[in-house]
Computed example of a mutant assay.
Amino acid sequence: MRSFLYFLTALAVIGLAAWAYRENHLTQQAMNEHRALEREVASLGNAITIQRTEWAYLNRPDRLRELVDVNFERLLLVPMTADHFGEIGQVAYPLPVLRSDYSTAVEVFGTLDEDAVSEEREP
């Protein structure tokens, strides 16, 4: 009987060791994936920073002014001034549509029976 208990204890220890090894392996794998994702996020953040810097560099007012001057004949761009904007009163808003005939808005599916209505009202 003792040898059987020793055997079961040894099996339990081996089973627990296998389970612990498997969990350790899965944990290491998850940590490696986490590190890889962190590296990818960092590189994408750097790429976004570089693109924002390039965008700011390309949108410098002096550079854009030079491009407008060089391509004036083809694009016909002029500097924007306050004269290019209109007054709020100059905006043409559409007039609201007024309906005087509401008979087409409701469809009738039956007729009203006067007797049925009077029977429902009486307690």
Rank of each mutant, 00 (worst) to 15 (best):
F4W: 01
F4R: 04
F4D: 02
L5G: 00
Y6D: 13
F7W: 12
L8Q: 10
A12I: 13
V13E: 05
V13F: 08
G15N: 06
G15W: 05
A17M: 05
A17W: 11
A17R: 04
A18V: 06
A18W: 01
W19M: 08
A20Q: 09
A20G: 12
Y21A: 14
E23M: 04
L26S: 10
T27I: 11
Q28M: 14
M31H: 12
N32K: 12
E33S: 14
H34Q: 09
R35Y: 05
A36E: 10
A36G: 08
E38V: 08
A42K: 12
A42S: 12
A42C: 07
L44W: 08
L44R: 12
L44E: 09
G45D: 14
A47N: 09
I48H: 15
I48A: 15
T49N: 14
I50D: 13
Q51M: 15
R52N: 15
R52M: 15
T53K: 13
T53H: 12
E54Y: 14
W55A: 15
A56H: 14
A56S: 14
A56N: 13
A56Y: 14
N59Y: 08
N59K: 12
R60S: 13
D62R: 08
V68T: 08
V68E: 05
D69A: 13
V70P: 02
N71G: 04
F72K: 07
F72A: 09
R74Y: 03
L75S: 02
L75K: 06
L76T: 08
L76G: 05
L76Q: 12
L77H: 10
L77A: 11
V78W: 12
P79R: 14
D83C: 01
G86K: 07
G86D: 06
E87Q: 00
I88V: 03
I88W: 01
I88C: 00
G89F: 01
G89A: 00
G89M: 00
Q90G: 02
A92N: 00
Y93E: 01
Y93T: 05
P94R: 01
L95N: 02
P96T: 03
V97S: 03
V97E: 08
L98N: 00
L98M: 00
R99S: 08
S100K: 01
S100T: 06
S100A: 01
Y102K: 04
A105C: 09
V106E: 02
E107N: 03
V108P: 02
F109P: 00
T111K: 06
L112V: 15
L112W: 12
E114H: 09
E114G: 02
E114A: 10
E114D: 09
D115S: 07
E119Q: 13
E119T: 08
R121M: 02
R121G: 05
E122H: 03
